[in-house]
Amino acid sequence: MKHFLIEITYTVPFSTLEAVVPEHRAFLQTGYDKGWLLLSGPMNPRTGGIVVARAPSQEDLQYFFSGDPYALRGFALYRFVEFDPVKYQPFLAEWIQEAP
């Protein structure tokens, strides 16, 4: 598995997409259920969000996020940064080292 930091940047004011947040979070839950997402949350100030993820490839992850309600409505842009987690807390070892 490859590991990624995903930066989500809103292209509209938060007030425009606020009603879609529950759909976005339900979408993210499908990524958690697949074992692809480790953590996610909004930036401060609320101009976007951050996700730490893993996937077989960047293309797979990009395809997954193309189904995000924010993406489907044109409310956000996504930046995918692949990285190699060489140092991490011991409690993360299983998630980092195993394939889902």
Rank of each mutant, 00 (worst) to 15 (best):
M1R: 06
K2M: 10
F4Y: 15
I6N: 04
I6T: 02
E7K: 13
E7G: 07
E7W: 07
I8C: 12
I8A: 08
T9C: 08
Y10H: 12
Y10N: 11
T11L: 15
V12H: 05
P13L: 01
P13M: 06
F14I: 07
F14H: 07
S15M: 01
T16R: 11
T16F: 08
L17M: 14
A19D: 13
V21L: 13
V21E: 12
P22A: 11
P22K: 06
P22V: 10
E23I: 02
R25K: 13
A26P: 01
A26T: 05
F27V: 09
Q29P: 04
Q29K: 13
T30W: 10
G31R: 02
Y32F: 15
Y32A: 06
D33T: 06
D33Y: 03
K34G: 08
K34Y: 07
G35W: 06
W36Q: 08
L37K: 00
L38Y: 13
L38F: 13
L39F: 10
M43H: 15
P45R: 11
R46S: 06
T47P: 01
T47V: 15
G48S: 10
G48E: 10
G49I: 02
V51T: 01
V51S: 01
V52W: 09
A53W: 02
R54E: 08
R54G: 09
A55K: 05
A55I: 05
P56Y: 04
S57I: 03
S57Y: 03
Q58T: 04
E59F: 03
E59N: 08
D60A: 14
L61C: 00
Q62V: 03
F64L: 01
G67L: 04
Y70F: 15
Y70K: 02
A71H: 12
A71R: 05
L72C: 08
L72R: 15
R73S: 05
R73T: 01
G74I: 03
G74H: 04
G74Q: 05
F75L: 06
R79K: 14
V81G: 00
E82H: 00
F83G: 02
F83V: 09
F83Q: 10
D84R: 11
D84A: 13
V86L: 11
Q89M: 11
P90H: 10
P90E: 15
F91K: 14
L92M: 14
L92S: 05
A93R: 12
E94H: 12
E94S: 14
W95D: 12
I96M: 04
E98N: 15
A99V: 12
A99K: 09
P100D: 10
